[in-house]
Each structure stands twice: as C-alpha cells, then as structure tokens.
Computed example of a mutant assay.
Amino acid sequence: MDTITHTLFGLGIYAAVDKRDMKKHEKRALLLTVVAGSQIPDIDVISRLWDYNGQYQMWHRGLTHSVFLVPLWGALLYWVSKMIFRHQMKKLLWIGMLSVFIHITSDVLNAWGTGYLEPFSQIRLSLGTVPIVDFVIWAVFLAAFLCWRMGRTAQHLVFRIAWAVILLHVSLQTLQGAYLLNTIGERYEQAALSAEFLPWHYTIVAKSGKDISIGSAAVWKEYSIHTVLESNEDADLSPLYAQNPRAAALNTWSPFVVVVENGNRLGIYDPRFYRNGESFLYEYIDK
C-alpha cells in the first residue's frame, strides 16, 4: 500500500484503542508505537544507498516485510517507546506487532507483492486483489472520523466498526479477485491479477506462448481483452543481464515478463504495470 494508507492504518489502530483510562504519556507511547509500526517495514528503501548491483527490486518489500520478523519489530517498537515514555503497558508489544502485521499483510494484497516468507522462501507473494492506493479505505476512515466528531459515540467504538467495514471490503475484493483469476487463468499458461481503483474491477494479464493479453474483468461480466502484446521468447537476454543487472532482478521478481528485441533495444518489462503503451517497470539496454 502507499505511505498515506499505511499511516491511516496506524492512526486507525490508535483510534480503535480504548484510551479513557490511559495517562497522557501512555497515549503518546501508543501513538508512537502504532505510527512507527505502520511504517517501519518500509525502512528497506535505504537499500538504494548501497544498491550497486541492481538488486533494489528484490530488497524493497523483501526481508523487512517478512511475517517472521513481526515479533522482532514489535519488541523493538515496545523497547523504544518504553525508553522514551517510561510506560509499563505490556499490551504495546502486541499492538506494535499488530501494526506491523497489518502493514506487511496489506502489501501482499496488491500487485507489487512482498517477500512475506523470507528468508525461508524467495517467492514474492502478490495477490493483486487490492489496489496500491485504495480510496475505499480512505473513505471509510474519513467517514469514521466525521461520525466520531459529529456524534456522541466513543471514538474507539466508531473506529472498531470502521475496521470491520475495511475487513469486509478487503475480503470481498480478495474473494472476487481469486475467483476471476482462477476461472480466467485456467485458459492460459500463466495469469496475474491487478486490482483497479474502481472497487470490484480488476485487470488480468494472461500469457499463452508469445502472446500476452491484458483485459478487464468483473464477476458480472466477461473478460474483455483490450491489449495483446507479443513477447520475443527466443531472444538472448544474457547481454541485457550483463549490462543491466536490474533486468535480472526484475525477471526474478515478476510473475512473467514481456521480452522486447528490435534494432534499437533489448529489454524486458512487467505487463501488469503496462499503461499508455509502456510499463513503468521496464529495464533495457540500447544496442
């Protein structure tokens, strides 16, 4: 998910906790824990500073997004908040773990994916059932805030309802996306899903031989192909990998790629991010 959504998740957790019996320094410790926890897996962006081998694509959302690191992140957040605010709230350990878990699990739901099982598996889990920027989630949190400010219901009760609505939304998105990918994907060699910004609408990218089809899908309508790409599967990619290591990382990271070879360029790109004639995940060399 995007940074704004992750921040909203942290603030949403803070609002959903009953703080009526908490002291001021305890509330501050809670706020620090949930906001930091909602962002800390993305600390891997600093790997750009030492990425001399083109491996950032694999490092970003890699080990720091592993579900096995959730207890370690939670313990770190608890220790930092305790050192700063001198609180005695044991539950902050679990709340910190929850904020990290929501971050890394929500990232699995979009097309970018994460190394959710690292270091035991290098597979990138990417369901693609929720867009990276989900405006429904934004709208639910905004509605909860307005209801709390204008009403008389306790803040934690309003935001617990908001979390239930978000869980329902994500579940419906995921179930529909999984159904479409299963029913449409069985017609092709490979298929990948990417949720669109409009709820319950998806883009499905499917590969059959050299042809890669991109189309829109929803449970109530047929899969409609709007773009067909041709991949040069016979191209020798060794010069590309030798001169542009980022291409090798992209090929490992993506479910499948489109291979481009013409008189001027040799490259590969991820068709899930194909927009306006080109994918923004495109690595190539000029001949």
Rank of each mutant, 00 (worst) to 15 (best):
S171Y: 04
L172V: 10
L172C: 11
Q173S: 11
L175V: 12
L175Y: 07
Q176D: 10
Y179C: 10
Y179V: 11
L180D: 00
L180E: 02
L180T: 00
L180G: 02
L181F: 04
L181Y: 03
N182F: 12
T183E: 11
T183A: 10
T183K: 12
T183W: 05
I184A: 04
I184L: 02
I184F: 06
G185T: 04
E186P: 06
E186M: 12
E186Y: 08
Y188A: 08
Y188H: 13
Y188D: 09
Y188C: 10
E189W: 12
E189R: 13
Q190V: 07
A191C: 06
L193Y: 03
L193P: 01
L193A: 02
L193M: 10
E196L: 13
E196K: 14
F197V: 14
F197T: 14
F197E: 14
F197W: 12
L198D: 07
W200Q: 09
W200C: 05
H201K: 14
Y202N: 02
T203D: 06
T203P: 04
T203N: 09
I204H: 03
V205H: 00
V205A: 07
V205K: 05
A206S: 10
K207F: 06
S208T: 07
S208M: 09
G209F: 01
D211E: 12
D211T: 09
D211H: 08
S213A: 09
S213G: 06
G215D: 01
G215W: 00
S216F: 04
S216L: 04
S216H: 14
S216W: 02
A217V: 00
A218V: 05
V219L: 15
V219D: 11
V219Y: 13
V219M: 10
W220S: 14
W220A: 13
K221N: 13
K221S: 14
K221W: 05
K221G: 07
K221M: 09
E222W: 12
